[in-house]
Design a binder for these strands. Sequence first.
DNA 1: CGTCTGTTTGATAGCGCTCAAAGGGGGTGG
DNA 2: CCACCCCCTTTGAGCGCTATCAAACAGACG
Lengths: 251, 251
Amino acid sequence: MPPSGFTKKPQLQSPSPREPSGSSPCAACTVRELAVCSVLEKGELERLNSIMTNFRLSKGENLFYEGDDPNFVFNITGGTVQLSKLLPDGRRQVIGYRDKGDFLGLTNSQTYNCSAEAITDVKLCKFRRVDLESIFMEYPKLESHLLSMTRNNLADTTEQLLLLGRKMAIERVASFLLTLSDRAANRGEPDNPVFVAMGRHSVGDYLGLTTETVSRTLTRLKRRNVISLGNTLQSITILDKDQLADLAGGY
Amino acid sequence: MPPSGFTKKPQLQSPSPREPSGSSPCAACTVRELAVCSVLEKGELERLNSIMTNFRLSKGENLFYEGDDPNFVFNITGGTVQLSKLLPDGRRQVIGYRDKGDFLGLTNSQTYNCSAEAITDVKLCKFRRVDLESIFMEYPKLESHLLSMTRNNLADTTEQLLLLGRKMAIERVASFLLTLSDRAANRGEPDNPVFVAMGRHSVGDYLGLTTETVSRTLTRLKRRNVISLGNTLQSITILDKDQLADLAGGY
DNA sequence: CGTCTGTTTGATAGCGCTCAAAGGGGGTGG
DNA sequence: CCACCCCCTTTGAGCGCTATCAAACAGACG
């Protein structure tokens, strides 16, 4: 059963309310199983901890912009970050979304190749890029795990190419809803109703559509009784998952 | 100067006609500087050599199909491979192209997530996946370099998202020609006229367009004197690179 | 020289965009 | 607590870009 256009990550086995045993943030981390640091052991975490700082971002704030010097890299410990690119005339393409456990900001080029914006309140670990790279030298298994995560990102992005290049509007929206639902389940959150953190405009920029087309398409799905729209606009209930999957393109 | 939608790889410094000094294929390899094995030293190459086999593919043959068991991974030493995905009804999206020096076939999932077809005659090194993974354990720098290459692939794919999601047909074709040109230069081959190995249909499936639209768009570019079409159909001369770059989206 | 395949050109239609306006929800100030 | 405002979303009308359908054209090969 191929999932709906996103690659499963290691799943949170339980709510796992890890007690803050030590004073170090890492010791109290609740998302480590999801993150790149899952491969490190106690002492090694201390080392990681020593080069890390924690901070928060409010909904709507930007973490970095396309073109900035890529001096810092990040680990999300809570919330959702939206990555996007711009054309000179302002047309925007949303590249993807990153959730807790995801890693962010490492690039081969001289600048970040996309912008990152918090679409919910977000909690992050922050590293100087050079510091993290030296840690990589010490613990190759970190880089090995990061490679695995990057391959997942690539697989997801590749699936999005198929969506943008070849799917109709209704197929795009159907795929999107299924992906959101699966991602929530993977984080151990309810997968139905689907929580749509981003606005219609962002959804459009993610799916290569306009706000209006997204809205119209959701209405069409509602009239077909495939979904129902909650009263918050951020809540969409999947009524007929099979039909939604058919529409999404055969999965 | 941001390149036209593809990430530069380490460049071939010279034609580098490496003499076949030993009997091992790796010792005679002419593309090692481009490839993941560039980080290995002499003795280590022997180790790599011991788990590798060389073979060739003719133009049009498939290396593997989406859904196959991903038991083998590959290194391209010559020619070009096209990666693509299919929807159940046959709509196709070309994911990208891989050239000599590129690495191919490693995935986290239980199957290859795209199909790979030789669009020229292709020379390859082939590894059993499990063998290569054990080599990775021995030489972490291999995995480190592979991560870097994967990040480049991700950056390129991300750029393609912008193209498919937000660019007009003429912008897509312009971007495509510039990318092809840059890629050829990177391989140490002539960048103008551009050699278009793939047919119009494949170009369409790469750019999210139909064959007809690709053809019409090339004609429009020709009438604007931005390009001229050679007599082989595979040869396109860039007459006005600046205008082409403008059309490609502001670069 | 004929056939086959891939490309170009042409005519038409449709999906999604653009422009425009109405609707709705949340926050703020009275 | 209500009224107003602002922003986001939804709905509507019309158009344009690209797809579709169809035919002419061209190059490769026998």
